[in-house]
Computed example of a mutant assay.
Amino acid sequence: MTALDKDTIIKDAIGYVKKLFAGNSDGHGADHTMRVYHNAQMIMEAFPEADSFVISLAALLHDADDYKLFNTENNMNARSFMDSKALSSEIEEQVCSVINSVSFSKNKGRRPETLEGKIVQDADRLDALGAIGIARTFAYGGKAGRPLEDSIKHFYDKLLLLKDEMNTEVAREIAQKRHELLISFLEEYYEETGYRYEQ
């Protein structure tokens, strides 16, 4: 497969996820996917040995079968796209393996075995931190009918844990800065509301 072929497939994958997530407003839409894709591009610059095609595809398709959004099994949406491009079963399985290693809830405390998985997992988790992480938390909470206090609890259940679960040094540095913003936000929220979450 030529570099041009790969570039065309990546371009088509971008179009696919934009259609797949059309109308999504809960923080898991195409805009999230594109940020994860760009995060992955940035991180993998430090790892020239990584498979950039697998990373790019996995980053773009990582939420294509998210259980919160789709009722699919065995990465059906991701596989459907890759089958339409006649990708080899080897590439398809590599991409699906990376996708399956990304989810926080399904992989809590477990690190991906491959470098590609580590990069995409970091790319996704960075988008749950900082200002964008705060915005996504409340966007999802609003759509799910979750009270503000439950969204605050989500900070302690997930967001504040992410800084220490990054796989790469590049992501750790970015995560530290974004983590500090989460802490600042919580303190300001508590001051304004008089509410404080007790673990």
Rank of each mutant, 00 (worst) to 15 (best):
I174E: 06
Q199P: 15
I55R: 11
L182M: 04
I174H: 05
E187K: 15
A135E: 15
R196F: 05
Y190R: 06
G109K: 14
M42F: 11
E192T: 08
S103V: 04
H62L: 08
G27V: 05
Y140C: 07
G130Y: 10
Y140D: 00
G133I: 02
T137M: 06
G194I: 00
S101D: 15
A22Q: 15
K106P: 08
A139G: 00
V170P: 00
L162Q: 04
M1F: 14
D26P: 07
R35E: 05
I174P: 01
T137Y: 01
E192Q: 11
V120R: 09
Y37T: 08
T33P: 09
F155Q: 00
A86K: 01
L182F: 13
K153D: 13
Y195F: 15
D66P: 10
K143A: 01
L61N: 09
E187R: 12
Y197C: 04
L57D: 10
S184Y: 09
A175Y: 04
D164I: 03
K6W: 09
A40V: 13
S52G: 05
G15H: 12
D5S: 13
Q41H: 03
S52T: 09
A64Q: 00
H62D: 11
A46Q: 10
K153V: 03
I55F: 09
A171D: 03
M44T: 08
V102F: 10
S105H: 07
I132Q: 01
K6M: 12
M76L: 06
S101L: 02
E180S: 11
N74M: 05
S89C: 00
P48S: 04
I14N: 07
D127T: 08
A86Q: 05
R110E: 12
K158P: 00
F47M: 10
R178V: 02
G145Y: 09
R178A: 11
S25K: 15
E188N: 12
R196T: 13
Y140A: 05
Y156S: 03
D31P: 09
A13I: 09
L4Q: 14
E90A: 02
A3L: 15
I99A: 02
R110S: 09
A139D: 00
R110W: 04
H28G: 04
K85Y: 05
I183Q: 08
A131K: 01
N71G: 13
E116S: 07
F47H: 15
E191R: 15
S101F: 03
M1Q: 14
H62F: 07
F185C: 05
K18Y: 11
A30T: 03
S89R: 06
L126Q: 02
N75L: 01
A86N: 12
I91D: 08
I183F: 06
D157I: 06
